[in-house]
């Protein structure tokens, strides 16, 4: 990657996270010129399986992993490229993230890891390898957290965070999400294909956003921070969440068990996101999707103060 020596605050404030490539997100997010990539595109470690399907490969298999500085402190970072095969997890793609998390597990003193998710889930052309890589990543992530590393997920790319990506996100210490960040397991089309349009109409974009989008995730407690679609906003959130994120232990998991059980009890009978938001005490729940980030954050903080002890 072309590692520019300077990044101005102006660039960070004006660059859209959603519109940026994985490489630009990393370059602009970290302290200027600090990023060093491991097994970059020059190494040409590509998927060994896509030839079978006559599909184009990419020199980095759609993920950038390396080391850099954030606010003067070292960390590891991984960024998925949502524009290559929907950011999907294949054998090489997944193994790069597994290796990075195993390094975080073995690094003393522990340093944080940032995962810039942008993925539709497992790459079907190498489905078994991709599925298994999700499981290996989750185990390595938990081992890294147990060793003291904070693992923070940043979600706001065009492919969202679906399938196995959603499970890895749920394993992270903390999550920041933007308007564009959708977090789910089954995608809208998959639900519609399997259960019918009455269950989920994938063409109804407003339904997709209010069900899986960043605002609902923030309001139910599925994400810790809701941020603007700028590099600067994600940078500020990453710095905050690295400080606040909980350790990984039995107490945290008991707190998460209580948090999820409470969610089922409070909202288990809600038919739509708007019903949940109304029950959260938001007076004009229908207006939530149209609110500015500032106004939304104020309302969200009042309805459900972020807690940092149960993820």
């Amino acid at each position: 990657m072309t590692d520019q020596k300077t990044v101005t605050p102006f660039q960070r404030h004006t660059s859209s996270w959603y519109e940026s490539s994985a490489r630009d997100r990393v370059r602009l997010l970290l302290d200027a010129g600090s990023f060093r990539e491991f097994i970059g595109p020059e190494a040409r470690e590509m998927s060994p399986h896509l030839d079978l399907f006559d599909l184009p490969k990419q020199f980095d298999d759609g993920i950038v992993v390396g080391r850099g500085m954030l606010g003067g402190k070292p960390l590891f970072v991984a960024a998925q490229e949502g524009r290559f095969m929907g950011g999907a997890f294949g054998e090489v793609h997944g193994a790069k993230l597994t290796g990075l998390l195993r390094a975080a597990r073995d690094t003393r003193p522990a340093i944080p890891v940032l995962i810039l998710f942008d993925t539709g889930g497992v790459r079907l052309q190498e489905a078994n390898a991709g599925e298994l890589s999700i499981s290996e990543i989750m185990r390595a992530l938990v081992e890294a957290r147990t060793a003291g590393a904070k693992v923070v997920g940043l979600i706001g790319g065009r492919s969202g965070c679906y399938g196995g990506g959603g499970l890895i996100a749920g394993t992270c210490s903390a999550l920041a999400v933007s308007e564009h960040g959708r977090i789910a397991v089954s995608g809208p089309e998959v639900i519609e294909t399997n259960r019918g349009i009455e269950e989920f109409d994938s063409k109804d974009k407003s339904l997709v956003w209010r069900t899986m989008g960043g605002r609902n995730r923030r309001l139910i407690g599925g994400a810790d921070a809701f941020v603007d679609d700028t590099i600067e906003a994600f940078r500020a959130a990453a710095l905050l969440l690295i400080e606040r994120a909980p350790a990984f232990d039995l107490d945290m998991l008991k707190a998460e068990q209580a948090r999820l059980t409470e969610r089922l009890q409070r909202f288990g009978d809600c038919a739509d996101a708007v019903d949940i938001w109304a029950r959260e005490g938001i007076a004009d729940a229908r207006s939530v999707p149209g609110l500015s980030t500032e106004a939304f954050t104020a309302i969200a903080d009042k309805a459900r103060e972020p807690r940092y002890d149960a993820r």
Binding site: M138, R139, V142, G166, L167, I168, A169, G170, T171, I183, A184, V185, S186, V190, I191, N194, R195, E199, F200, T211, M212, N216, R217, I220, G221, G222, F248, D249, L250, L253, E256, Q257, L260, R263, L264, F267, G268, C270, A271, D272, A273, I276
Partner: peptide, 23 residues
């Protein structure tokens, strides 16, 4: 695969079980 499960954060519930088993 349902609207209700995804609405309420199915990814967190699945990840939580995995985390409990790993712990």
């Amino acid at each position: 695969m349902s609207k209700r499960d995804e609405l309420l954060g199915l990814n967190e519930f699945l990840a939580h079980l995995a985390k409990c088993l790993l712990l």
